[in-house]
Amino acid sequence: MERLFCDPRRCVGCRACEIACAVEHTPSKDLFVSVLNRELGPPRRRVQTVGAQPYRVAIGGVVLSLGCHHCDPAPCVDACITGAMHKEDGQTVCDTDKCVGCWMCVMRCPYGAITPKVKAIKCDLCPDRREKVGRSRYACVEACPTEALFAGTFEEFQRVLAEPVTAVWEGRQ
């Protein structure tokens, strides 16, 4: 199954993925209209600095963008008392109509990838972009200016990691 990965060598921590994600999940899907209409919810992935103080120096200030891993088996699905959180073609999906906000999933998710905000909010792999292909299939991937975000299988992503980092414009020629 296709999932999202972040290449920490490319991620500069610009948080464009966070904004794109929040905007994608508004009715207008437009940054400025969604701000005006107060439609913006929490982003479903977040840019994070790896390590607390002593580590930041040691690891060299690595940043990366993290969200739901769509685990199998998924601890959040086990935890859900309503059946809202469920698996669908390998994806972990929350049916927010069924969610009652008990936060059992938040307690169980070891990645902190679920935001408790009235309903359980998490990466849904952009269902409104199902028809799109390439980098525009996912809002965060499309928005990533350094192409740190990658959509594919982990095996494909490993091949990316095995390659040296090339400048983005080189890849676009």
Binding site: R46, V50, A52, Y55
Partner: peptide, 19 residues
Amino acid sequence: APVKDELLELGPDLGRVLP
């Protein structure tokens, strides 16, 4: 121990404890 001082500020960021 290495993250003790920041543990109470911990948001949903796994990043801080990833090391």
